[in-house]
Design a protein around this nucleic acid. Sequence first.
DNA 1: TTAGAATGTAACAGAACTGTCATATCAAAG
DNA 2: CTTTGATATGACAGTTCTGTTACATTCTAA
Lengths: 236, 236
Amino acid sequence: MNKSSKATVLVAEDEESLRETLKLNLELEGYEVTTADTGPAALKVVKNEYFDLIVLDIMLPEIDGLTICETIRMQHNDVPILFLSARNSGADRVEGLKKGGDDYLTKPFNLEELLLRVNKLITKNKKIKEPQAVADFYEFSGCKIDFAAHECVGKNGLKQELSKKEAALLKLLIEHEGEVVSREQILQIVWGYNVYPTTRTIDNFILNFRKYFEADTRNPVHFHSIRGIGYKFTAN
Amino acid sequence: MNKSSKATVLVAEDEESLRETLKLNLELEGYEVTTADTGPAALKVVKNEYFDLIVLDIMLPEIDGLTICETIRMQHNDVPILFLSARNSGADRVEGLKKGGDDYLTKPFNLEELLLRVNKLITKNKKIKEPQAVADFYEFSGCKIDFAAHECVGKNGLKQELSKKEAALLKLLIEHEGEVVSREQILQIVWGYNVYPTTRTIDNFILNFRKYFEADTRNPVHFHSIRGIGYKFTAN
DNA sequence: TTAGAATGTAACAGAACTGTCATATCAAAG
DNA sequence: CTTTGATATGACAGTTCTGTTACATTCTAA
């Protein structure tokens, strides 16, 4: 996770005043906040964007929070979820945690407490995801990359300078060698903001990498595009 | 953490009946439970033994729970701590979380809820300590599937990329190995809550899987169709 | 046995996504 | 204030994926 990039939070809450209060306060805490006011709206953004945490009201229009949570978990998304609920019956709370929620607060809640819990959930989850750093120097099938010097030697043996973003993206892909990295993840980590859907920016960087490192740019061996998902780097 | 060894929990609570109730119930859940009835006693065992979780009453004789928590954290011990308190003032809860507690319950609490939270804290912490233990990889009778890389190796030994939907459906079926997954379930999970494709779509995906993974597509061994219900994946 | 329903199969078309390039924007350096 | 290199955007073409349709085949129940 890039230090400069903010953690992202989705607030799914139908009552406007509370929604805006949460948004404002979370932003003051330094989070990037997206909001949704109905169940379907929440599901839609979750599908399209990456979040570090979801604050989810149990009672939402159209599709309720518990169902939302269940759906999200069924789609193998293990983003932390913090439930909000007006009800305070034990049964309800148990229900929330069982469905895969990570924490639970009942309204009315203390704002400071919410912020603390949010922070706790986010840092905890990040710890898990923090990938092991790659050394400053990396080599694969005849190509060399020196992250410290911001330069590389490509297939043709030519030395090539790497720009900041090029280096960051390259590092990200190499850290996940053999795995697909989604566009959302890339934007989140390298760029530090949420999705701008019609951007061809990432493609252009990949294009460059292929020029530097691929013998045949049309049939990439190292920089694969996985349609609908993202890109994958393979060492050999 | 060794699978065969139980997770260990320290219950620091001065009221005897509650302490014993907790001990009993946690042991029934399969935890190894140690108890302490005063602040100093709790600090002492924490110093000498390893725990996966501490259940800590805020009001303890001699040294209160918040101070205990602070002391433990100062010793760079990040064992999860679940606070118990009779008070329900927001300030108090905030205090607990600030001092480094991981969760908070107010008495009287629902026992099942406590057990769920205990379980959540313990598993969460383990995840951090065993990074990536569960590989996103599956193998059955000569075929290999790598969900992280979005690719598979089929019966013929050929590598094959998996598209988004293919991967999602495959994962679903494999997770339910040996069970029938209904068409409705498939639609709900793979396609989402309201974008149902109409007719022969699922069949076509199954068709592909059979091409990839079955020696004889006419007599499938792995991807069975259960008439009137759905599909079933069998490993061998 | 046979009608009716569910599934298998393949071809096709529209949608969605990516590759590529030309151009715009921006910030830092000169 | 200009230059320059890096990055972002938009257009468009090319590609792949996915859902649909049509028809064949298999199964089930009457």
